[in-house]
Design a protein around this nucleic acid. Structure first.
Lengths: 340, 340
DNA sequence: ACAAGACACGGAAACGTTTCCACAATTAAA
DNA sequence: TTTAATTGTGGAAACGTTTCCGTGTCTTGT
């Protein structure tokens, strides 16, 4: 039960701690014989180096902080899986936090992470985040930060998104081609960039059509699911209801399904629906949901690769201030498609 | 850009590092005047204590390791959310790992975690895990470990599960009541405890009936989805196909939906289906899926509470070797229910 | 045979905290 | 007034690594 550390090994072997350390790290200045002895004892006693002593000494924690706005969401889980697939190869660990779409929570997490607990941060900002001062502070401490999906535009670093504008455009275009004359756009929050980009794509598609767009076609939704349900029901009940809906996030599409079902309307006969979503089982829904799905795993992988390149070697340049776009794919299913 | 640490603060204030440290920790032996001065400068220079120096000194990392067999799964995400809701109150951090249902991966993760990187481990074992020697080693190092859902029975510690036996029994009973005469049980792996428990419940329900059970009603599934799909199609194609299926995990139920759809059979008319699942949108499936769903968030919360009680105070007793059961709830939907 | 380098290892400092121990200065008790 | 206790602070050690610097023993070339 006594902790087996380098000093203990050294004492057992009648060697200096420095020699043991070097042997364990396979240093060139240690003879094969000594290395063998050290490694044998280390294995026998099941020596495990203390990561904190190491971190303290090396000023690097081999840990990456990941902040996501919600955990119960396939998209984020896939991104983290992708990220982990890269980072674990290099012996990095993932500290994962859920901001619950709450800026205050986000700030709190960031403040935990300052002070060297992580070597870098990978995050998707909360939908409430407009002021990015707390994020700028991360950079000023010299901690690399990468944004994905929901990015903070004014922080100079690498950001990964999908082709949100284009996808919003294509998704809307698709609805118009199906004969929709009144297409609503479900927006989670004006703050988040992807919402805005997707909305702009939507707006462009609408502008190119001959429909007389009205501002109230863009639905600002709440965080609360029940509020959204009531809102949607009120929107689709009247005679002026939409015949098409494009949802910028999966959660809202789910609620839309519920609302439409409760009002006894039919998808796609009465209302056609398209949603951004990374749901695996979109094809099992009633009816199967037309999705615009993001290459989540790939995003995670690319975040990981970029980060490892930066962290593994010393004196690497800062992460370039660029926006990397990985295209989404639209998968047309029954929810938007009326067979002739 | 020079790191602001305690020594630096002390130099600026013309005090000893020990005084500064005590002031920051609000020690009773420091005067109010000094505390005020120190705190003011610390705030001004945005001092952040180095967590690794602290951990090294205190032999505690304020970090908990979480190991799950898959990330893209609502159940595990909910558990982690519940766990985090407790641990973050106490300033604990979560290091999350995905074992991808692979024992070797699991062992590797465990070995990372030994050596003090985490103060405790919360995990659900992989479906391949039968030998638990690597898990026993964790305890021998004095690191508390808690299992949930998929537990390692022979490790003496607290384990959280749901009433798997009972749920398996009730789910099967429900199918029998719907008139099923041949009910298959989908098993992910014989190794995992919950699979076994659920299966035993199934077996009891079958035994109590007048059906002539055959061992091949229990379907050992693969890890690979496509293999399962082919397997299921071969099982439901012949005339001796089942008229009821109970799936011990969500993933297999999804594949069963696909298989049944591809063979042009109907749920529930031809085959009635029940599954253990924490899917949020079971009611939106075609047809809505009858689920036995676990109180995932609550499991996480209870893991967290137990762990915090153990970790916050010194010299707490070991975690009791008990099995805590939190009941699942069955939600009957169309997939298993034939309206008269 | 002797200087010069290579080789193998030991000693000690450093990373940033916390805490044990010591010690003045002040206050309370005798 | 002397002694004892209290209060506020400083010095230094310790946590477990890694690494800088030093040093002694061998080899090698001249």
């Amino acid at each position: 039960m006594t902790k087996v550390n380098i000093k203990y090994l050294a004492a057992q072997l009648n060697m200096a701690p420095s020699t043991v350390s070097r042997a364990l790290n396979d240093s060139y200045e240690i003879s094969h014989a000594t290395k063998a002895k050290v490694l044998a004892l280390a294995k026998k006693l099941n020596y495990q180096p203390n990561p904190y002593a190491r971190s303290l000494r090396a000023h690097s924690s081999k840990t990456i902080g990941v902040i996501i706005p919600e955990r119960i969401n396939n998209f984020f889980s896939q991104v983290i899986d992708g990220l982990e697939s890269i980072t674990q190869e290099y012996g990095y660990h993932l500290l994962v936090y859920n901001s619950h779409e709450d800026v205050e929570q986000e700030k709190k997490i960031i403040s935990y992470l300052l002070g060297g607990r992580v070597d870098a941060i990978v995050m998707s900002v909360s939908s409430q985040t407009s002021d990015t001062q707390h994020l700028a502070q991360v950079q000023s401490q010299g901690i690399p930060i990468i944004f994905f999906d929901r990015i903070a535009q004014d922080i100079p670093t690498t950001k990964f998104t999908t082709n949100d504008f284009e996808s919003g455009y294509l998704g809307t275009k698709h609805l118009l081609e199906q004969g929709c004359r009144k297409v609503f756009f479900l927006l989670l929050s004006k703050e988040i960039t992807i919402g805005r980009e997707r909305m702009k794509g939507y707006q462009k598609a609408i502008e190119e059509s001959d429909l007389d767009f009205s501002e109230d076609w863009i639905i600002q939704c709440h965080q609360d699911e029940n509020q959204n349900l009531e809102l949607f029901k009120s929107l689709i009940y009247p005679i002026h209801r939409p015949d098409g809906i494009i949802s910028s996030v999966e959660k809202l599409a789910i609620t839309a399904y519920h609302a439409i079902r409760q009002t006894k309307l039919r998808i796609p006969e009465d209302i056609r629906l398209v949603s951004f979503s990374n749901m695996k089982i979109a094809d099992l829904l009633q009816p199967p949901l037309t999705t615009i799905s993001q290459p989540a795993h790939e995003i995670g992988v690319q975040c990981g690769q970029l980060l490892m390149k930066k962290l593994i070697k010393k004196n690497q340049p800062d992460l370039p201030n660029t926006l990397i776009t990985i295209p989404s794919t639209i998968q047309v299913r029954t929810s938007s498609f009326l067979k002739p």
